[in-house]
Computed example of a mutant assay.
Amino acid sequence: MLKKLLITSVTGLLLTIGIKPSIAGTLVENVARSGFLTVGTSMNAVPYSYINADEQLDGFSIDIIKLIHKQLEEELDRDIVLDFVPVSTPQEALRKMITGEIDIACNGVFTWERDKYVDYTLRYTISGIRLLFPKGKIPTDTSFANTKIGIPPQTFVSNAIKLAHPNATFVEVATFEDGATALKEGKIDALAGDTMMLDGLRQQINSEGFEQYPPFSENPYARFGVGCIVPQNNSTFLNIANFTIAKMMEGYLINDPEMTTLVNKWVGENGVVSIVSPEAIKSFFENTINNHEQIPFTK
Rank of each mutant, 00 (worst) to 15 (best):
Q71Y: 09
I23L: 14
F224C: 10
L131M: 02
V276N: 05
D189V: 12
E73R: 11
T244V: 13
F243A: 13
H165C: 09
L2R: 00
I104R: 11
G59S: 02
H69T: 11
Y213P: 04
G59W: 00
L6R: 02
F144K: 08
G251N: 05
N287P: 01
T261P: 00
L37A: 11
M259L: 12
K247W: 09
G186K: 00
L94G: 15
S34I: 07
K96I: 06
I240Y: 00
L183P: 03
P134W: 04
I126G: 02
G225Y: 08
E185M: 09
L191T: 06
E101G: 06
N146W: 00
A145F: 07
D194L: 12
V85S: 00
A24P: 02
K187Y: 02
P214W: 01
T89P: 10
L122T: 10
E55R: 07
M248G: 06
P152K: 03
V85A: 00
E286I: 10
K66F: 03
A222F: 07
T175P: 04
K184I: 12
S217M: 13
V226F: 08
T298S: 14
R114E: 11
V273G: 08
T99P: 00
N167R: 07
T140F: 13
V10T: 11
A145S: 11
Y252G: 12
Y252T: 13
N233M: 15
A280C: 03
S34C: 09
I289Q: 04
A168L: 07
S207N: 02
L14I: 08
G40Y: 01
G271D: 06
I205A: 07
G18A: 03
G271H: 04
P134V: 13
R33S: 15
G227M: 06
F297M: 12
I68P: 01
I51C: 01
A174K: 14
Q212F: 01
F60Q: 11
N239I: 14
F170L: 02
S61I: 11
E177T: 09
E211Q: 12
G59M: 01
T244W: 04
T8F: 01
F237E: 12
K137Q: 09
F176C: 04
I281F: 07
A246F: 09
E258M: 13
L67N: 08
L6P: 02
R202F: 05
R223A: 07
S88N: 09
F297I: 15
F84H: 09
I281K: 03
K3F: 01
I80A: 03
